[in-house]
């Protein structure tokens, strides 16, 4: 059964050598993952495939020399996520609900965190919803900036989005805030490997305890962070005060997406709209992308994970 799938993956990713190489790295550790990858890539538009190639090329730089380990950890991470998914479908909620629990189970465990972070990095290209959201970020967020901008990202993690922002000719300055010293170290190392086009000020801050911002930013990005917080609305309200009058915020938050350290559950598009509007923003644009390119309405009804990406401006 392997041969026809392999041929199709070559076909689907023809002319996208980095994405093909990354898929190969995952498959080397996990041959049975082929059907999943074939569908994941097969559902992508040419624009999303182009973005996937860009992201894959960056990821290959980050994992160079350690490809096999990243492939293994991707598989391991998907196994952990499957366990959370079983719980979620049985109980209708995320397993953990407080930061203290997540800290005890996940954040304080360096070995676990290392594997999890390496695994999640590969999902940025291998998962349909992550690649589609990145395409939106590149084309309709960064690409839509009309003048010079100062950039703030909260929870940059792997640093890919920060690096893409740094590459924008309109980007004037960059700051990245994260609560975790380990994450900031990962971001620092990533920006170096990617040859980030501009310096990035890395600041250790808990977004829920941050001091009033000293300056204003024209583009604030908070991607895959709010679901880790006990009080996501508070974080967004705080960021409202860090946004310039004509600034934009890009919020990426997953719906029905169980993960070992996800605390805040959003179950619908309405939940996400209420979160963003309730924090004092007007929504300019909202795009939803379901896992594996499923139709969004079906995915929502079946409680399959959907990424919600929102561009907002101060109300």
């Amino acid at each position: 059964m392997t041969a026809p799938h392999a041929a199709s993956l070559d076909l689907t990713l023809a002319g996208r050598p980095s994405a093909r190489a990354l898929a190969g790295i995952a498959l080397a550790a996990w041959p049975e993952h082929e059907k999943f990858l074939l569908r994941s890539f097969g559902q992508r538009s040419p624009a999303v495939l182009d973005a996937s190639e860009t992201v894959s090329a960056a990821i290959l730089k980050l994992i160079a020399g350690e490809e096999a380990r990243f492939g293994e950890d991707y598989r391991w991470t998907c196994d952990r996520l499957r366990e959370e998914e079983i719980f979620f479908h049985r109980e209708g909620r995320y397993r953990l609900s407080t930061f203290a629990e997540a800290h005890a189970e996940v954040y304080s465990n360096d070995v676990y965190m290392g594997r999890y972070m390496r695994g999640l990095l590969l999902t940025q290209a291998l998962w349909f919803n992550h690649a589609a959201t990145t395409e939106m970020f590149l084309a309709r967020v960064l690409g839509a900036m009309e003048g010079p901008f100062d950039y703030l990202e909260v929870g940059p993690g792997h640093g890919l989005m920060t690096a893409f922002a740094a590459a924008s000719p309109l980007c004037r300055s960059l700051e990245a805030w994260d609560v975790s010293a380990t994450s900031l170290e990962e971001t620092r190392a990533a920006l170096k490997k990617l040859g980030a086009a501009k310096p990035v000020a890395l600041v250790r801050t808990d977004i829920l305890r941050a001091e009033p911002a000293q300056r204003r930013f024209d583009l604030v990005v908070i991607s895959e962070v709010l679901e880790h917080l006990e009080a996501p609305g508070e974080a967004l309200r705080f960021l409202r005060s860090a946004l310039s009058e004509r600034g934009r915020i890009f919020v990426n938050v997953p719906i029905n997406s169980p993960s070992p350290d996800h605390l805040a559950l959003f179950s619908s598009r309405e939940d996400v709209v209420a979160l963003v509007e309730g924090a004092g923003y007007r929504i300019d644009r909202i795009e939803l992308y379901a896992t594996q390119g499923r139709p969004v309405e079906t995915a929502l009804a079946q409680k399959i994970s959907v990424s919600a990406a929102v561009v907002g401006r101060p109300e």
Partner: peptide, 10 residues
């Protein structure tokens, strides 16, 4: 597929 598998089992 792997997504519907979990829903089926549950």
């Amino acid at each position: 597929d792997s997504l519907s598998h979990i829903r089926l089992i549950v």
